[in-house]
Amino acid sequence: MSGSSHLGIDDPVCPARGRINDIIASRGEDTERAYDAWAQYFDEDMITLGYGGYDVMGKNVIKFVTNKNAKILDVGCGTGLFGEKLRSLGYMNIFGVDASDSFLEKSREKGVYLELEEHRFGNGLKLPYSDNSFDVIMAVSILGPNTINPTALYELDGLLSPGGYLMIFIRRSRLDMERENFNVKAVLDDLLTSGRWERLPDSSGLYYTQPNGVPVAEGDEAVEGDGVVVTMKKLLKH
């Protein structure tokens, strides 16, 4: 990527922050290449930055999903870290989908998903699953202006069985964003207007903690700390 040193790994302060900031700044094909290159550093970077999404979402799953045999789809499964978290909580019926070959390969190495599929949202291709396939659909930190648009939630709508849950973990700044080409609230409101969904109370969760010894500048998305869990329940009847 132009203007960066291999996804920021030579950043003298914190390479992980450099990679995150390069991902945020990337566009189009550069974003795809950036994610593929990031796969080898991703697990370590999440530890370095103190990423809290997997723990927060794990607690949310336990709160609502008592059936440990529930069929779960991890959208944007990445390297499989959340799949590992779900397995540790006793959920075994887990499927994953991601757009990056490199991330999917890391997920395969962990061996926590029953099946893994490649899919790029927003390109008109149908997801490789039939309608009403899943009891729970998880989207952990995947929605972003330069990554996956919230309109992808429309693609996921048909995959969820009535009575099931759609759970989203997102930066608060992105949940509050109301751009013409990126507006999560508008999509959620549209789903609710259909009469087929109920939005349960949101909860707050830690997104990133401050890396030890690294000062955090206001507005630095690489270490943004405020996350939100949005839980939508698909109604049995409407």
Rank of each mutant, 00 (worst) to 15 (best):
residue 161 S to R: 15
residue 137 I to C: 08
residue 1 M to S: 13
residue 234 K to F: 03
residue 11 D to I: 06
residue 167 M to W: 06
residue 131 D to M: 07
residue 75 V to A: 10
residue 140 V to L: 14
residue 190 D to W: 00
residue 208 Y to N: 13
residue 131 D to L: 09
residue 1 M to Q: 10
residue 43 D to P: 00
residue 85 K to W: 01
residue 32 E to V: 08
residue 132 N to H: 08
residue 234 K to M: 07
residue 48 T to H: 02
residue 93 N to D: 14
residue 169 F to M: 08
residue 76 G to I: 14
residue 205 G to D: 01
residue 116 L to W: 05
residue 104 L to T: 04
residue 122 G to D: 09
residue 193 T to A: 15
residue 229 V to G: 04
residue 101 D to K: 10
residue 224 E to K: 06
residue 61 V to I: 14
residue 173 S to E: 08
residue 35 Y to H: 14
residue 167 M to R: 06
residue 158 G to I: 05
residue 238 H to F: 13
residue 162 P to R: 10
residue 229 V to H: 03
residue 237 K to W: 09
residue 177 M to W: 02
residue 206 L to Q: 13
residue 30 D to K: 12
residue 200 L to S: 01
residue 170 I to Q: 13
residue 220 D to C: 06
residue 176 D to E: 15
residue 84 E to A: 07
residue 204 S to H: 13
residue 23 I to V: 10
residue 212 N to C: 05
residue 91 Y to T: 06
residue 70 A to H: 06
residue 65 V to M: 12
residue 98 D to W: 11
residue 117 E to C: 08
residue 169 F to A: 11
residue 234 K to Q: 07
residue 21 N to C: 07
residue 141 S to K: 03
residue 110 K to D: 01
residue 14 C to L: 11
residue 116 L to I: 04
residue 105 E to V: 02
residue 90 G to M: 01
residue 124 G to L: 03
residue 3 G to D: 11
residue 230 V to K: 04
residue 109 E to I: 00
residue 147 T to P: 00
residue 116 L to V: 01
residue 220 D to P: 00
residue 66 T to K: 13
residue 42 F to I: 00
residue 105 E to T: 09
residue 178 E to K: 14
residue 228 V to T: 14
residue 65 V to L: 13
residue 195 G to C: 08
residue 158 G to N: 14
residue 115 E to C: 02
residue 19 R to T: 07
residue 176 D to M: 14
residue 207 Y to T: 03
residue 149 N to I: 03
residue 183 N to L: 08
residue 173 S to L: 08
residue 3 G to V: 01
residue 130 S to P: 02
residue 92 M to C: 08
residue 92 M to T: 11
residue 101 D to Y: 10
residue 222 A to S: 15
residue 119 H to L: 06
residue 135 D to I: 11
residue 138 M to F: 04
residue 181 N to F: 12
residue 172 R to S: 13
residue 226 D to K: 13
residue 162 P to E: 02
residue 53 G to A: 14
residue 47 I to F: 07
residue 231 T to F: 10
residue 108 R to L: 02
residue 202 D to V: 03
residue 148 I to H: 01
residue 101 D to A: 06
residue 80 G to P: 01
residue 42 F to K: 07
residue 3 G to W: 10
residue 223 V to P: 00
residue 132 N to G: 02
residue 45 D to F: 11
residue 196 R to A: 05
residue 164 G to R: 06
residue 180 E to F: 00
residue 212 N to H: 11
residue 156 L to G: 02
residue 175 L to P: 05
residue 163 G to W: 12
residue 192 L to E: 07
residue 229 V to D: 05
residue 204 S to L: 12
residue 178 E to M: 11
residue 34 A to K: 05
residue 75 V to T: 12
residue 26 S to W: 08
residue 18 G to W: 15
residue 6 H to Q: 08
residue 180 E to K: 15
residue 103 F to E: 06
residue 217 A to R: 13
residue 179 R to W: 15
